[in-house]
Simulated scan of single mutants.
Amino acid sequence: MQVLTIPVTPFMQNCRVLVCPTSRIAAIVDPGGEPEKIIARLTEEGLKPKMILLTHAHLDHVGASTKLGEYYDIEIIGPHKDDLFWLEALPMQSQMFGFENHAAFLPSSWLNDGDTVEVGKLKLEVRHCPGHTPGHVVFYEPVSQQVLVGDVLFKGSVGRTDFPKGDAAKLKHSIESKLFSLPNEVVVHSGHGENTTIGYEKATNPFMSGRFG
């Protein structure tokens, strides 16, 4: 699986584009804003995405979803339905995050733990990882051993839990049961910052070892 990274907005959120190397079919994951920048990169790469996938419903991860969905005439899929309240609160989020006003929207379909999403010949395993938000999901591609984790896990850190319905205990359980159960070699693509690996975070992440939090 090829993963293109397009940092967007002042939050430097990592919009990712997943590309099936066999079919060149692509999916956009977490388009947080700046749709023109995302479209320009896709055009440069000669890609036409087939879907938009969302890990969670914070505005800095979904801000360009409706515009890209309309531009490419593609569906928005995910996250888990427990993030519905965040999507309904997008106008409030716009004020909270200092973004241009964004209308509420609903995805074409929700995702559940154990679902599979096909992008060309790629088969992404969906894992529900509540804690940062209650409906957060991650996407694991076992053949290339890569996982897109949104804001669940970062290099040397974990997602915030001080937003409404955040839960630190649930976040830690999600990481331990749904991410640290993956092979150590798995590359972790986080929603902000640089990549890491499961093995590195298991060995060094201070928030999971008990040193912090």
Rank of each mutant, 00 (worst) to 15 (best):
H58N: 12
L59T: 06
H61L: 12
H61Y: 08
V62R: 00
A64S: 05
T66S: 03
T66M: 14
K67L: 13
L68K: 00
G69R: 00
G69K: 08
G69M: 06
Y71F: 13
Y72G: 04
E75V: 04
I76M: 04
I76F: 05
I77L: 14
I77M: 02
I77F: 02
G78S: 11
G78N: 08
P79C: 04
P79R: 06
P79A: 09
P79T: 02
H80Y: 14
K81P: 01
K81M: 04
D82K: 11
D82T: 06
D82R: 13
D83V: 13
D83T: 09
F85Q: 05
E88H: 11
A89G: 12
L90R: 11
L90W: 01
S94C: 09
Q95M: 15
Q95T: 13
F97Q: 05
F97V: 14
F97Y: 14
F97M: 14
F99G: 14
E100F: 07
E100C: 09
N101Y: 15
H102L: 14
H102Y: 03
H102C: 13
A104W: 00
F105P: 03
P107R: 10
P107F: 07
S108W: 10
S108I: 06
S109N: 07
W110L: 11
L111R: 07
N112V: 13
N112S: 13
D113M: 10
G114D: 13
V117Q: 04
E118K: 06
E118N: 07
V119A: 07
V119K: 05
G120W: 02
G120E: 01
K121T: 15
L122E: 10
L122T: 03
L122P: 00
K123C: 02
K123I: 01
L124A: 00
E125P: 01
H128A: 05
C129D: 00
